[in-house]
């Protein structure tokens, strides 16, 4: 029984079909990579998984640990352990990063029936986690994503992932905007969180991320469907040759 099972997902936005019968199984402990040309529907897939308003399926099913996700709201899905690192993280002006992080951290603890941390204990914990991702204290005093550089935003996403310790994480182009050093730090951060019980789906355009986060399975997505899956070598092949040959094979 896969941890995440997407069967034949169809989804349209404004009457335009974006996902056209997409299926994907992810098991505990696995790392998947999804690659594919711009506009093929990768971010749409991630929003659909997270339960964003307007991204309801026309057809198909999604289950997570055997639970039907379709009727669940974004926060309920998050509570089950689903995390999405946004391709474009959203700014929350006026909302202090530290407060935001404490709120989401304690709300997760509460859901899990664990003790919430006191302010002081949380700050200690946060400092440690942030340090591992080379995030400076100064950044945590700022408003959530507000005026963050592209790379800072991506790091902040992974910081949240580390705090929430999700069961399945979808990282949507987390590598874009990261400098060489940051790419390494962030990837290590993701790898450190990885264990046999959780799973990661990385959406990326580039092999350089996959040099650090080694995928078990690579999928090629085009025009709303997964058209080919393979091992890590498939990504290397794409890096060298582009998509055209695989796309042609399809037609």
């Amino acid at each position: 029984m896969p941890m995440l099972e997407i069967k034949n997902a169809e989804l349209s936005i404004d009457d335009k079909k974006i996902l056209k019968g997409l299926s994907l199984n992810v098991n505990e402990g696995e790392t998947h990579a999804i690659m594919g040309p711009n506009g093929s529907g990768k971010s749409t897939l991630s929003y659909m998984l997270a339960g964003r308003d307007g991204y309801e399926l026309d057809n198909g099913s999604i289950t997570f640990n055997n639970i039907d996700l379709i009727p669940l709201s974004p926060d309920e899905r998050s509570n089950l352990g689903l995390f999405l690192a946004f391709q474009y993280p959203v700014e929350l002006p006026g909302v202090s990063s530290t407060n935001f992080l404490r709120e989401i951290f304690n709300s997760r603890k509460k859901y899990l029936g664990e003790d919430e941390l006191t302010h002081l204990d949380f700050i200690k914990h946060l400092r440690k986690v942030a340090q591992n991702l080379s995030i400076k204290d100064e950044m945590l005093k700022r408003y959530v994503n507000y005026g963050f550089s592209g790379g800072e935003k991506k790091r902040f996403e992974i910081l949240q992932m580390a705090l929430l310790n999700p069961k399945i994480s979808v990282l949507d182009e987390t590598d874009s905007g990261l400098d060489v050093d940051a790419l390494k730090i962030v990837s290590e951060g993701v790898n450190n969180l990885k264990d046999k019980k959780n799973a990661v789906i990385v959406i990326t355009h580039y092999q350089r991320l996959l040099d650090y986060i080694k995928p078990d399975i690579v999928h090629i997505m085009s025009d709303g469907k997964i058209i080919k899956s393979g091992d890590a070598d498939l990504a290397l092949y794409i890096e060298k040759n582009g998509y055209s040959e695989i796309l042609n094979e399809q037609n």
Binding site: S73, D75, S78, L84, F86, L92, L164
Partner: peptide, 13 residues
Amino acid sequence: DQLFYCMQRGLDA
């Protein structure tokens, strides 16, 4: 966008 972002992190509406 903001609502969805917060809710994705587990906060209710």
